Simulated scan of single mutants.
Amino acid sequence: MDAESIEGFREFARARFQPLRALAYVTCGDWQAAEDAVSGVLSRLYLRWDKVASPEAYARTAVIRAAIGEKRRPWHREHAVGEAFPDVPVPDRSGDVDEKLRMRAALRQVPPRQRAALVLRYLEGLSIEETAEVLKCSPGTVKSQTSRGLGTLRAVLAAEITEKGVDHVVSHRGRA
C-alpha cells in the first residue's frame, strides 16, 4: 500500500471509529465487545483498503456482523470480572439521559437480528434495501424483523409503564 492509501485509511478510521463503535454497542450491548468488533473490522479493512469500493458500507456491514457474532461466541457466555461492578452511567448534559437509558435497556431485550434491523433502519438511517444488504437477507426479512423488533420494543416499554404505574399507586397507598 502506498503512503496516500495509508493516510486515506487513517483518516477514515479516525473519522468513523466512534460512530462504528456506537453502532456495534447498540447492536451487542457491550462496550468491550463493540470495541473488539470495530478493531477487528478496521484491521481487516486495512488489509483490503485498496480493493474495497465502498469502505463505509464494508465497515458498517462487517461491524454489525461482528457485533452479533461477539454475543454468540461460547467464551462470551462466561462472566467477566467487570460484570461484578455496577454500570455507572455518565451524566448527559442534554437532559435526555433517562430516556436514553430507558430506551437502551428496552432495546437490549429485543433479539439480536431484530435489534440490528432497528439500529440500521432508525439510528443509521439506512433504507430497507441497504439494511437487507448489510444483514445479507431479503428486503421482506428486513421489514418483518423491523416490525417484530418494534413490536417487542413497544411491549417492553408498555410493561415498564404498567409496572411504574402500579408501583406509584402502591407507594401512595402505603402513605395513607
Rank of each mutant, 00 (worst) to 15 (best):
residue 37 A to W: 04
residue 108 R to Y: 06
residue 118 L to I: 11
residue 95 G to W: 14
residue 110 V to A: 00
residue 102 R to N: 03
residue 94 S to K: 13
residue 52 V to N: 00
residue 43 S to H: 08
residue 125 G to D: 11
residue 139 P to C: 11
residue 110 V to K: 02
residue 84 A to P: 03
residue 131 T to K: 02
residue 34 A to V: 11
residue 5 S to C: 06
residue 164 K to N: 13
residue 107 L to I: 07
residue 89 P to T: 05
residue 151 G to F: 15
residue 29 G to N: 06
residue 54 S to H: 11
residue 91 P to D: 10
residue 88 V to Q: 08
residue 14 R to W: 08
residue 141 T to W: 00
residue 69 G to C: 09
residue 118 L to K: 01
residue 164 K to T: 13
residue 28 C to L: 12
residue 120 L to V: 07
residue 151 G to D: 10
residue 121 R to W: 00
residue 140 G to I: 09
residue 51 K to H: 09
residue 129 E to F: 08
residue 56 E to W: 14
residue 112 P to I: 09
residue 50 D to N: 11
residue 62 A to P: 03
residue 60 R to H: 06
residue 148 R to Y: 13
residue 28 C to G: 04
residue 176 A to H: 05
residue 5 S to P: 08
residue 139 P to W: 10
residue 129 E to R: 14
residue 154 R to M: 11
residue 171 S to M: 10
residue 82 G to P: 03
residue 4 E to R: 15
residue 103 M to F: 15
residue 91 P to Q: 07
residue 115 R to P: 07
residue 53 A to M: 10
residue 34 A to M: 06
residue 158 A to S: 13
residue 13 A to T: 10
residue 123 L to Q: 01
residue 92 D to P: 11
residue 150 L to P: 04
residue 21 R to D: 07
residue 117 A to I: 09
residue 144 S to H: 09
residue 24 A to G: 04
residue 141 T to L: 02
residue 143 K to C: 02
residue 166 V to G: 00
residue 137 C to H: 00
residue 118 L to D: 00
residue 67 A to M: 12
residue 41 V to M: 03
residue 175 R to P: 05
residue 38 V to W: 04
residue 71 K to M: 12
residue 160 E to T: 12
residue 23 L to Y: 01
residue 127 S to P: 05
residue 154 R to W: 10
residue 91 P to Y: 15
residue 31 W to M: 12
residue 29 G to D: 08
residue 89 P to C: 11
residue 116 A to D: 02
residue 22 A to C: 09
residue 160 E to M: 13
residue 23 L to G: 01
residue 125 G to R: 11
residue 121 R to C: 06
residue 150 L to A: 02
residue 45 L to E: 02
residue 42 L to Y: 02
residue 75 W to M: 07
